[in-house]
Simulated scan of single mutants.
Amino acid sequence: MDSQFADRMSSVHKSFIREILKVTEDPSIISFAGGLPNPRFFPVSEVAEAAQKVLGECGYAALQYATTEGHPPLREYIAKRYAEKGLKVSPEEILITTGSQQGLDLAGKVFLNKGDKVIVERPTYLAAIQSFGMFEPQFLSVPLHHDGMDADALDRALSEHQVKLVYAVTNFQNPTGITYSSSKRREIADVLKDRNVALIDDNPYSDLRFMGEEVAPMKAFLGDQAIMLGSFSKLVSPGFRLGWICAREEIMEKLIVAKQAADLHSSCFAQRVVHQYLVDNDINSHIEKIRAAYRRQRDTMVEAIEESFPAAVEHTRPEGGMFLWVTLPEGISSLELFGRAIKENVAFVPGQAFFANGGGENTMRLNFSNSDEERIVEGIARLGRAINSMMS
């Protein structure tokens, strides 16, 4: 029966997180597992007004087929936002995608043949492993430190292997929450310059900084060698499934062909509604509300961990984003801990799912954005009991 299917399907598995989320549908379970924005900040009434305006003013066009590249005013808006961060980007260098996840899929289609080598962080974003994995590459994992990818290890990997892509989440990394320092970005750019390799800078969380200083995107250090991914999921709504990929013209031409073959174009109605919402509302004010809430939730989780977890347990202290990373003592399995935690009615993501080449058995990812402070305190207390019972 398996002979019916493509060989690639045997090496790519279901999303570990999606499977875990099925377990957490029970409302009695406090879940730190999903990478979910807090729905309290979805601008429901404002989006309703934007949708009504779009249908009233250009309903026929909004419900018709559209160009693959995306709604021109939305692409212009994104280019303007980049300009505000000091990056000169043309709207023609921006392709609207069905979530930034599609950007990974399109990059895989454009760059990867079976057996090609892709460098990823250790640990890395689980869905990137899954998305690139469809094209049957060989993953090379480079250690991730508190300030970013190990530049020396990256240099060695590039010297020893013919690499097609380097993939990184440089701001508030998923899963660890760490951010690449400015000096680390410069080091990595120095390693990559003059090498025929592209860096995919996956950056859905950059606007969610609630402490510390903003750092320029990798494109500011690396120029056209950097391919940028962005998303409206964390700022407006994940339900729209709208993101974008930004790349130089030569790459963009290939990406457009790949997208035409995939879905013709992302929802033009959703694009027009999001653009109308952005035009009619103060997005920076909206972002500040999200930042303030996530800062409180992050601080609550950090304080609860330090109160409830054993001293031997380590954790990151993110300056933004939605996640923090926990490292248990060697020999303590987070997968086994998950079973105990569910009995305590609390859930997380065991860390080994984020390692492309194995490892991470004693790590786990916690999401702080989708729970209020009261549930965070109670959930971390439950998780602390499970950890203490294992370690004793």
Rank of each mutant, 00 (worst) to 15 (best):
F5I: 08
S11Y: 13
K14P: 09
E25C: 13
P39C: 05
R40L: 14
F41M: 08
E46Q: 15
Q52L: 12
V54S: 09
L55H: 02
E76Y: 09
K80R: 11
R81E: 15
E84V: 06
L87E: 15
E93W: 03
E93T: 01
T98S: 14
T98C: 11
Q102A: 07
L106K: 04
A107S: 13
L112S: 06
L112W: 04
K117H: 12
S131A: 14
F139Q: 03
S141G: 02
V142D: 09
D147Q: 10
D155A: 15
A157Q: 10
Q162K: 15
T170F: 04
N171H: 13
Y180K: 04
S182T: 10
R185A: 08
A198C: 11
D201C: 01
D202N: 15
E214P: 03
A216N: 09
A226V: 06
L235P: 00
P238K: 13
R241V: 08
L242H: 03
G243D: 08
I251D: 01
K254P: 00
A258W: 04
K259S: 00
L264G: 05
D280R: 08
I283Q: 05
S285G: 14
S285Q: 14
Q297R: 15
Q297C: 03
V302Q: 01
A312W: 07
E314D: 15
T316M: 13
T316Q: 12
L324P: 08
L328A: 01
G331E: 06
S334M: 01
L337W: 00
F338A: 15
G339M: 03
A341W: 01
A353W: 02
M364S: 04
N370E: 12
D372P: 05
L383T: 00
S389T: 12
M391V: 07
